[in-house]
Write a protein that binds this DNA or RNA. Structure first.
Length: 434
RNA sequence: GCGAAUGUAGCUCAGUUGGUUAGAGCGCUGGUUUGUGGUACCAGAUGUCGUGAGUUCGAAUCUCAUCAUUCGCCCCA
């Protein structure tokens, strides 16, 4: 029997896991800072629930199995479980309902770079009844912006668009029936040359003249203000188009009021998102210098979250950080500050077993002062104890030996600088806590 | 689901037209005399060369199969 881990499942060493947990904690705290409440739903659900609103692609990738007579499935994302949750508890929830959820989701697809079968999604969503204020679409941007800033990530941009613009535009060209196909193609524009894009449009049976217009429309360049102006200049007489433009304008201006640096958001009309339940604003986040990472955070607005479960209307807007991908790609580029494999601030070592009692007592004292500390208990040469302390990269080493015991003090060694000093208990605690 | 590539020590890899006991660096273990690590020096361990079969006097090297991994496409975080 050889030990191995399934492909597409991430497993980390302690020094990496510590960084991962830190990122999770920053995300969690930021989400709560914006007033989102925590939510946890089961990893397993009835298959019929998870497959309720999905297209063919989900069915192909979802892990599904039978236990007894029950058809079960592992959650594919956190949005469908949220839809079920809202349908189930809407009478007990207070709207607008803001929730966050950080959890693993499962997709049985072929693992590739940045693609996992088990990965963390860190979702936020705001759900309301009947109508949801458009300003929330800007708030979602502010949350992501704050998280990325706090995580000290490389330069990034949140690209946004409004689906109503393109669908209104296509409607005005009288090719509304091709909307889904065109959207799928638009999503690929960054990956394929323009000629190939035009050819694929031609394959849809659209006339050359329209195709040029579509290409021109989705590749409008400029800063946010310039793009908004260009969109207004199109002067398209279509209700959906006008609504989309107005929404986009509001989101941009409110984002500024929320304190987002305009450098970090960019209107991009080629962002459409594959998932067909989005109806308005859509988001995707990329790093300026690492486009190959793919989108590390995306989402959008949907008009009707729980429609498959009930008649009431619940519009929402949400976004999700793909934490596993984010972590994996940053690690691959050496962009993570990976430290030692221990959360300990101090390690206590004794010169000989005779001082074990003092060591254990001191550890208790440090922990009562909220200082993560540990006693090294393996009996070996003192040199080995030093090597251990060095290897786990613990910031402080506390030594107890004959002299210290006699004088009733401790030797505190800063492992980074090598400096050491003799301190009494209260001085020691102060020095380590600093 | 479709297409392509790659499998040699824990990791990254070398291994010359098939030729004897398969190598390097990093890491790991021990040591350089007993209260001090990170540097240096010395020594050491670890491989059924992915697996199975075939060709050959002889295979890490050639052929086939198989498994695994990786990279594209599709779709997505």
């Amino acid at each position: 029997m050889t030990a191995r881990t399934l492909q597409g499942f991430m497993e980390l060493l302690p020094q990496e896991q510590i960084v991962m947990e830190h990122m999770k904690s920053v995300i969690r705290h930021t989400y709560e800072l914006f007033g989102f409440a925590p939510l946890d739903t089961p990893i397993l659900e009835l298959a019929e629930v998870l497959l309720s609103k999905s297209g063919g692609e989900t069915e192909k990738q979802i892990y599904e199995f039978k236990k007894g007579d029950t058809d079960l499935a592992m959650r594919f994302d956190l949005t469908v479980p949220l839809a079920k949750y809202v349908a189930l508890y809407n009478n007990d929830l207070t709207f607008p309902f803001k929730r966050y959820q950080i959890g693993k989701v499962y997709r049985g697809e072929r693992p590739q770079k940045g693609r996992f079968r088990e990965f963390y999604q860190c979702d936020i969503d705001i759900i309301d009844r009947d109508e949801l204020n458009i300003v929330y679409d800007a708030e979602v941007l502010a949350v992501i912006y704050t998280v990325f800033k706090k995580l000290e990530l490389p330069a990034f941009k949140i690209y946004l668009n409004n689906r109503k613009l393109l669908s209104g535009f296509l409607e005005s060209l009288n090719i509304r029936d091709k909307t889904v196909d065109v959207l799928r193609l638009v999503d690929k524009i960054k990956k394929i040359p323009e000629a190939a894009f035009l050819e694929e449009l031609r394959d849809l049976g659209l006339p050359e003249e329209l195709n040029r217009k579509i290409l021109e429309f989705i590749t409008v360049k400029g800063n946010n203000e310039e793009i908004l102006q260009a969109l207004a200049a199109y002067n398209i007489d279509n209700e959906s188009y006008r609504a989309g433009l107005e929404e986009l304008r509001t989101v941009i201006s409110q984002a500024r009021n929320l304190g987002i640096n305009p450098q970090n958001i960019q209107v991009d009309l080629s962002i459409t998102r594959g998932l067909d339940y989005y109806t308005g604003t859509v988001y995707e986040t990329f790093f300026d210098d690492y486009p190959e990472f793919g989108s590390v955070c995306s989402g959008g607005r949907y008009e009707n979250l729980s429609s498959v479960f009930m008649d009431k209307k619940f519009p929402g807007v949400g976004i999700s950080i793909g934490l596993t991908r984010l972590f994996d790609q940053l690690r691959g580029k050496g962009l993570l500050k990976i430290g030692g494999p221990t959360p300990n601030k101090a390690l206590i070592v004794v010169q000989s077993a005779a001082y074990q009692t003092q060591a254990v007592t001191l550890a208790g004292e440090l922990r009562r002062h909220d200082i993560a500390a540990d006693v090294f208990l393996r009996e070996c040469k003192f040199k080995k104890k030093m090597e251990y302390a060095n290897k786990i990269k613990v910031p402080y080493l506390i030594i107890i030996g004959e002299d210290e015991a006699a004088q009733g003090n401790y030797t505190l060694k800063n492992m980074q600088t090598g400096d050491q000093q003799r301190l009494k208990l209260d001085e020691l605690i102060k020095a380590v806590a600093a």
